[in-house]
């Protein structure tokens, strides 16, 4: 009995050892690529939410319980430099947290948002990332596809551009957003919810509002710290 226990343990241990050994090598190969992908993704998101800006340093501030990450951006235009900020906002949606990168200018007007992580229901909440493809299947098959230089940005993210994040953002049920709705909705500082996924829309909206407020606090604290360091 004891011998058999020993043998079983040995074999199990050996299997695990070999498995882990092999995996650590696979990890060593793939890890740099994964890291590069993630950096790339973050840079792409930053370029999307702060279009045309030079991204400055990344800062983290401990506001409340969680860490708040934000970036500063600058754009030279005429004789003044416009300042802008990008921050990461997070709120739980239906399944798991929805993480959004938001770019705002100094007044709090949203320059662009990019949803970097979500696990909402496909077909409903996951449509936050749905982009209307310019080509239809038949055009692709028959070879008459338009040359799309870049993928169109998802309408859900697109509609936040121009919204004032410092004020309350309203949610309207107008169905899928399109360019013609922009002026009407911006007048009311609102966005259109995804049909059947109002909760998801609300989570993104709330996270932007809370994130904006947190950004204000973080910036003030940073200014104070700078001043203290200057003295």
């Amino acid at each position: 009995m004891n011998a058999s226990i020993l043998r079983s343990t040995l074999i199990l241990g050996l299997t695990s050892f070999i498995a882990t050994f092999a995996l650590s090598h696979i990890k060593a190969i793939t890890y740099p690529v994964i890291q590069k992908q993630e950096r790339q993704k973050q840079e792409n998101a930053l370029a999307l939410v702060l279009p045309g800006y030079t991204i400055g340093e990344e800062r983290t501030a401990a506001v409340g319980r969680a860490n708040f990450t934000y970036w500063t951006g600058q754009k030279a235009g005429g004789n003044t430099t416009a300042k802008a900020y990008a921050f990461i906002a997070e709120k739980p949606g239906y399944s798991g947290a929805i993480r959004t990168m938001v770019g705002v200018d100094e007044k709090g007007t949203v320059l662009g948002i990019s949803i970097i992580r979500q696990s909402e229901t496909p077909g409903l909440g996951a449509r936050v990332l749905e982009a209307a493809s310019r080509n239809t299947f038949f055009q692709v098959v028959t070879g008459r596809a338009h040359e799309t230089g870049e993928e169109p940005s998802p309408w859900f993210q697109e509609q936040f551009r121009g919204v004032n994040a410092a004020a309350k953002i309203a949610i309207f049920k107008k169905g899928d957003w399109n360019e013609t709705m922009r002026d009407e909705l911006l007048l009311k500082n609102g966005v259109s919810a995804i049909t059947g996924a109002t909760i998801t829309t609300k989570a993104v909206k709330d996270s932007i509002e809370v994130g904006m407020a947190t950004l204000r606090i973080a910036l003030e604290e940073h200014a104070k710290a700078q001043e203290a360091a200057g003295k």
């Binding site: 299997t15 092999a22 793939t30 994964i34």
Partner: peptide, 16 residues
């Protein structure tokens, strides 16, 4: 354990 090893290989490769 054998199956899990190959699953992790797939996981890491796809992720990268």
């Amino acid at each position: 354990a054998i199956i899990a090893t190959f699953v992790i290989i797939v996981e890491l490769t796809l992720k990268a």
